[in-house]
């Protein structure tokens, strides 16, 4: 049940990310639903699970776009490991933790993906464009992650997976 719910959550997150509107002021970045899910699972699951969830979330993102398969997986897996490593360093108010980690994860994965695309896929990316997209992703991550985390936690509670989830 845990794996099934995870698959459904990741696929739904991927669909939402592709369908939700974008804003020019945020560098046309999509609402970072998948990075927010990576944050949630990195904070509530063990290191190996967090790694695999990062890889799976990246696969969903790559499969739904024209990015070569595996690029986002690398970025999300590294983000998941880092978040999992420092998950004890949290703020007293959980929402603030989610906002900061969400912003950092969205910005970090966006920047890393941009650099990977520039280096490996030969994509020409001006510095200004990378900066705008990274900042836009950070802002959207701050706004989105607390909502996504709250929603997925509710689902975990409904499905009786709350024992696995760290509160």
């Amino acid at each position: 049940m845990s794996v099934l719910s995870l698959v459904i959550v990741l696929l739904s997150g991927g669909v939402l990310q592709a369908v939700l509107p974008t804003w020019a002021a945020a560098g046309q970045m999509p609402v970072p639903v998948l990075p927010a899910l990576v944050v949630y699972y990195a904070l509530t699951r063990n290191r190996v699970a967090a790694f695999w969830i990062g890889v799976a979330a990246g696969l969903v993102q790559d499969a739904l776009g024209i990015v070569p398969l595996g690029f986002s997986s690398c970025c999300f897996a590294v983000a998941a490991l880092l978040l999992n490593r420092y998950r004890e360093e949290v703020f007293e108010w959980e929402g603030l933790t989610h906002m900061i980690l969400g912003g950092a994860a969205a910005a970090g994965t966006t920047l890393a993906l941009g650099l990977l695309l520039g280096a490996a896929a030969g994509m020409h990316l001006p510095v200004g464009r990378i900066a705008l997209k990274t900042l836009g992703a950070a802002g959207l991550g701050v706004a989105t992650t607390p909502l996504v985390c709250r929603g997925v936690r509710r689902l975990d509670v409904m499905l009786g997976l709350v024992a696995e989830a760290r509160r």
Binding site: G14, V15, Q17, A18, V19, T22, G27, Q28, M29, P30, L34, Q61, D62, L64, G65, I66, V67, S72, T110, L113, G114, L117, M123, L125, K133, G136, A137
Partner: peptide, 14 residues
């Protein structure tokens, strides 16, 4: 049009 690029690095739609 049913979706747009989910990474933000391309100007694509589906």
């Amino acid at each position: 049009v049913i979706a747009r690029d989910s990474t933000g690095w391309w100007q694509t739609l589906r």
